[in-house]
Amino acid sequence: EYHKVLNKGDNADKYKMAEEMYDAGEYKKSIPLFEKLVGPYGGKPQLERIQYMLADAYYQTGNYELSSYYFGKFIANYPGSSKIEEAAYLSAHSYYLAAPKYSRDQTDTNKALEAFQTYITNYPESERVADANKYYQELNARLEKKDFEIAHQYYHTEHYNAAMTAFDIFNEEHLGSSYKEEAMYFRFKAAHDLAVKSVLSKKSERLQEAKNSYDKFIKNFPESERLKEMNGLMEEVQRAEAELNEQIRAIESQSNS
């Protein structure tokens, strides 16, 4: 009977059956019916309900790419709808569920962040705000992890200069990040490795940079557990500096004599 209605039934039958399926939780079956109704009901008041149910059916069946798209469309078309708050939340949640893990393209993550942000601004009284906030923070942390891992990769592949720049940008862009301590720690390690392995002509400047990096860390995390290791590395920096000064003195005395 379903296929008969789907293929041959008139629009009113399809509408009726789609709604029944939707109410009964048969979302997968309701989708093709709703999709066939979108055209014929164009410009008619029923379309509001159809669009909402179609978006929700996609959401319920786990097709979040499409549910985010249809909820977005619903929000744009029916700003006055009684379902608008729910749609706004589900749209954001769809983007959240569609977004892949941190190491892949984060376009959906950014869309989810934007959608949750708008939701929180528009419906501050809603009981869903707590959840929205939680997701918002989770997504933000995901972006932080992405940037942190990229910067860390520069360190791991021994592109120290790139790592230092990337960690600097990280700390500028993600104020108060939970990765801040780690970021500053690796920023120092990169500066240290670069300085210790440096060619003579740039050594002095790079040793200074390592010291600055260390000072900055101490200022922010005076109690850190990493300090023990870092102090050890700083000793190396100081030793290298002493050696460098020795070398410079030797060269100077040579050229004087």
Binding site: P100, Y102, S103, R104, D105, Q106, T107, K146, E149, I150, Q153, Y154, T157, H159, N161, A162, M164, T165, A166, I169
Partner: peptide, 25 residues
């Protein structure tokens, strides 16, 4: 300043970033 990759729906960042010769700094 910042180097980013978009459009990698499958491949992880680290695989792509290691092939990129333009680096921050």
């Amino acid at each position: 300043n910042k180097v980013t990759v978009v459009g990698n729906d499958v491949t992880n960042d680290h695989v792509l970033y290691r092939e990129i010769y333009t680096r921050p700094g």
